[in-house]
Amino acid sequence: MSTDYQQARAALGARLRELRLSSPDGRLTGQQLAQRLGWQGSKVSKLENGRQTATPEDLRAWAEATGRPEASAELAARLAGFESHIRSWRRALANGFKPMHEDLSAEIERTVEIRMWEESVVPGLMQTPEYARHVIRRYAELLGGASDIEEAVRARAQRQEWLYQPGRKLHVLMWEAALRSLICPPSVLAAQLDRLTGLIGLDTVDLGVIPFTAPVKIVPANGFWVLDDRLVVAEDWHAELWLDDADNVALYGKVWKTLRESAVYGADAHNVINAARRALEPG
């Protein structure tokens, strides 16, 4: 969890505590408030100390129970402010994949240059529809809550039009594992690798691969995208992080440049992809 996110959650907790202690009905103890809300006392403590993220419903109930219903809008705004940077997969997928894809597509559309790192999957901007379908379905099976897989596949394919617009540039780094992970049937992966080799010569794409045998100066961890040095979109199992503060953008830029030192390009990258492709052929 990012420091920015935790600080914002702690600040929200401090505000909740302030409302409890300044209730018009008189200062409430945590236990008294918990009884009013029908909660366990530990939940009040966790929310106030920034150890648990409140839901919009929690905040409305808190404002009512402390006799300050007018504070509900303020609390909701605080929550929306920092949750816009940490998008819980479960909460986001409650509305399906389509809104999530639309949000990211809007950011990509206004971006000129993207630096991207993926350690175990081919990036969405380079995925074939069939490969994308398998990747999206795996997330849906893990997290639940989304049934619009086909709409998500179409949205991802439409997003790739960005690659063919003049003036755009996609700098991609992939670990060799992304070329070999069987998140899909071998035939689907083979077609995906064929697409990658076709993209190597595209003017708007700069594709680097880090072979398994290459020495690395940093652990090849979770994937991320850096959009125009103004926004980082990073993925973890529980959430998608949108980071727009200068320090974090600079840090991810440094990570990307460090990883790039281990990558191969051009004919050498083509050879690594072809080796992965040949490994899929029947013996």
Rank of each mutant, 00 (worst) to 15 (best):
D245G: 12
P69L: 01
H134A: 08
L241N: 12
R260F: 06
D268E: 15
I210L: 06
Q31R: 15
D229C: 07
R138L: 04
K217P: 05
G223D: 03
W117Y: 14
S187M: 08
R168W: 07
W162V: 02
E107K: 00
A73L: 12
I273L: 05
G13A: 02
K43I: 08
I183G: 07
V112M: 13
A177V: 06
E235M: 06
S42I: 14
M174W: 07
G198F: 10
A10V: 10
Q165W: 06
V112S: 14
V122R: 08
P99Y: 09
A94G: 13
E83P: 00
A54Y: 05
D229R: 14
F82T: 01
L243N: 07
D206E: 08
R78P: 02
A92C: 03
A246S: 10
N274C: 04
R115M: 12
R91T: 04
Q7G: 05
R168G: 03
L143F: 11
I149R: 11
S147L: 09
G41H: 09
Y131E: 08
V216Q: 09
E151G: 13
W237H: 11
D268L: 02
R133I: 06
A71Y: 07
R90E: 08
G253H: 00
Q31K: 14
A279G: 10
K254H: 15
E64C: 08
E70N: 05
R68G: 00
E176R: 00
E48S: 02
L202W: 09
H238C: 01
G201Y: 01
D244P: 09
L179S: 02
I273N: 05
I136M: 13
A34R: 10
K43H: 13
A146I: 03
R20V: 05
H134E: 13
G198I: 07
D103F: 08
E64V: 15
A61H: 10
T197H: 02
A234G: 15
D103Q: 12
R87S: 06
L173G: 08
R156Q: 07
P166E: 07
L143K: 09
L75H: 06
S72I: 01
P186L: 02
Y5G: 05
M126D: 08
S84K: 13
A190L: 09
R168S: 06
H238S: 06
A152D: 11
D247G: 01
I273M: 05
E176F: 02
D228Q: 07
A276W: 01
F82P: 02
W39M: 12
Q35R: 15
A11L: 04
P220A: 03
I183A: 12
E107W: 00
D25R: 06
G13Y: 04
D268G: 00
L47Y: 12
R278S: 00
D206F: 01
K43Q: 14
L143I: 15
I149G: 12
V112F: 11
R36D: 09
W225C: 05
S147K: 07
